[in-house]
Design a protein around this nucleic acid. Structure first.
Length: 207
DNA sequence: ACCGTCAATGCGACTG
DNA sequence: CAGTCGCATTGACGGT
């Protein structure tokens, strides 16, 4: 999407156009294109009209009525990550990320107390910490799925090889069986000089 | 221009 | 019923 020169109302997504209708309840009914550009993207110049905009960084804001439809304003922690260009910086800082990672290593889920304490330490909202952990669990699961997939691929490959080998062996045995019906083989077998089978086979499969 | 990553959102399901 | 989770998805952003 073209972002240069525009500000967005990302946390206000979910409304379509001028009618300010909330999203349909069912997931399936969601429109393919969720963003109505005419409504959620505002040229920076227009951001000077301050009804819906933040003067400081050119970010568009919704009016108070929008709150009735569940629109959330961008929180302060994200505000604090805005650079001079007027663009949002969604990335967490290295310090925040490493502390979150460290915490995730200790426990992959958080109880409310842990969440709030961590949020306070990180200067984030508890919801942001919660989201980070959810996304982190999803990443872990995805990684594990990839590992499992790789393992299964190797298994499949090895089984294919084994299957090929056994087929080949079967073919050899069949062709050998054909050979046994020849007069020469019959004579050799009678004399007990056949070395076709191992000793353990003798008596088991042959008389 | 395209793609991957990641913070964030919305929804259904579950639980205490 | 509120809180939480997994999941699918979105959109900003960075790398190539």
């Amino acid at each position: 999407m073209e972002a240069e020169g525009y500000c967005d109302t990302r946390l206000g997504l979910g409304l379509g156009g001028d009618n300010h209708e909330p999203w349909p309840q069912k997931k399936k009914e969601k429109p393919v294109v969720r963003l109505d550009l005419s409504f959620t993207l505002c040229p920076k110049n227009d951001a000077m009209d301050m009804d819906h905009h933040d003067k400081a960084d050119g970010i568009c804001f919704k009016s108070e009525e929008d709150e009735e439809y569940g629109i959330k304003r961008r929180d302060n922690s994200i505000d604090s990550n805005i650079d001079g260009s007027g663009r949002k910086k969604l990335r967490l800082t290295k310090e925040q990320s490493s502390l979150l990672e460290e915490s995730f290593r200790r426990h992959t889920t958080l109880n409310p107390a842990q969440k709030h304490s961590l949020a306070e330490q990180l200067n984030l909202k508890p919801r942001q910490v919660e989201v980070w952990f959810q996304n982190r669990r999803a990443r872990t699961k995805l990684k594990q799925t990839e590992v499992d997939c790789e393992f299964l691929k190797k298994c499949c490959e090895s089984l294919s090889n084994e299957n090929r080998r056994l087929k080949k062996e079967l073919q050899q045995l069949r062709s050998q069986k054909m050979g046994r019906s020849s007069p020469l083989y019959t004579q050799l077998a009678k004399e007990g000089t056949s070395t076709m089978c191992c000793s353990s086979c003798k008596g088991k499969y042959h008389d």
